[in-house]
Amino acid sequence: MYRLIAIWLYCLSIVFATTHALAISNTSNLEEPSFSGEWHWPDTQGNYQQLNVQFSEKLLAESETETFKINYSLTYPSQAISAYLSPRLEHAITMINQYVADPDTRIDDMLSALKNGDDSPSSRMLWDAYKQYTQDAFRHLGLLPCAHPQGAEYPCVRPNYSQLFYQNRTRILPVVESFSKQTDLNRSLAEAQAWLVTIPIKQENTFSFSPPISVLKDNLADSDERALLLAVVLSELAPNYPIYMVYPASSVGSASPAWLTIDSRSGIEGPTIMIDQQAHTLVSGSPSLIKEMLLADVAMISDALY
């Protein structure tokens, strides 16, 4: 099965490598205007609050490229992974053949080599390269592999929330700074949560994910986009406690619904849930929905962002 998937991915790469590369190139060259956003809301004390943020054209372009790359990858995972693998495997074959003394073990045909793998040094090196480049592809695309709930014979992927978290931490510093002025941790978090309510809810979409800058620019967010945006703020408010993205284990693509939690030892006020015998304090998402899922024994993934 593993070899069949590898062969299929390689075949797709021949068709889609050029198209994918051109699409990313065109996206990165878009002339985006600078962005200025403004939000208004009453804080926990009923006082009027206002948040203004601005992003440079460079940050907007980076976010647009990141958004395109992950959305394309979630929608067409086989093609995206294959586009990354193809040129690297071709180069690997060239290098392997240079160091293979026995002409009978040279790799002359990629498909045959993947299909008819054996214990020869060239075959082992090819499969080592395939596994390494596949891991690199997931990292490059911002994805994590998963097991498809229907057992389908094609890649199952999810956003790599931890990777996206680190890539976006420094991009929205104006937002973070506006909520880190309070000395009271729970009040700062409550104000950040009150601000998040002002961002309209977007319909959940399995095959797309918008990083924080794109969320702010579009002023729309679904559950996992909202959770990641809050995670960046919360990581500055409570940096010493693990933060988790929680979602159903059966999710494919952009996991929805999704919740943000923090280690209950943080002292942050909120509903407490137990996942994998660990106490989580819920800071984003519907408490009633996740409790219903846990009571129904729905398997949940607790993905640590850091």
Rank of each mutant, 00 (worst) to 15 (best):
G270E: 01
I262V: 15
D276P: 00
G267T: 04
T261H: 04
D276F: 04
G253N: 06
Q277N: 15
P248L: 07
P242R: 03
P242L: 09
T261E: 12
G253C: 13
S266C: 01
V246E: 07
T261M: 12
A258R: 08
E269Q: 13
V283Y: 02
D276M: 03
V252F: 12
Y244M: 06
T272M: 08
S254G: 02
Y247C: 04
S264T: 13
Q278G: 00
T281F: 03
V283K: 10
A255K: 06
S284R: 09
P257M: 11
R265A: 10
S250D: 13
N240R: 13
S235C: 00
P257N: 06
P239H: 05
S256K: 09
N240L: 14
Y247F: 15
S266A: 09
S266E: 01
L237Y: 06
M274S: 14
V246K: 05
A279V: 10
Q277P: 02
Q278M: 13
I275K: 11
L260Q: 05
P248R: 08
D263V: 05
S251N: 09
A279R: 12
Q278S: 11
A238N: 03
L282W: 10
I275M: 13
G270S: 01
L282G: 07
Y241K: 08
L260M: 13
W259V: 11
Q278C: 02
Y247I: 05
Y244E: 13
I268S: 08
L282H: 01
G270P: 03
Y247V: 08
A258K: 05
H280L: 09
R265E: 06
Q278K: 15
S266D: 05
M245E: 02
A255D: 01
H280I: 00
V283M: 01
P257Q: 13
M245N: 12
P239A: 01
P239F: 05
Q277S: 15
P257H: 07
L237D: 08
P271N: 11
S284Q: 08
S256L: 10
V246T: 12
N240H: 14
P257V: 06
Y244V: 12
G253P: 01
P242V: 05
S284T: 00
S254I: 04
S254Q: 14
N240Q: 15
S251K: 10
A238L: 03
L237C: 06
D263N: 13
V252L: 14
V252P: 04
A238W: 00
V283C: 03
T261C: 15
S284N: 14
S256P: 05
S250E: 14
I243Q: 11
I262F: 09
I268N: 04
D276H: 04
T261L: 12
V246I: 15
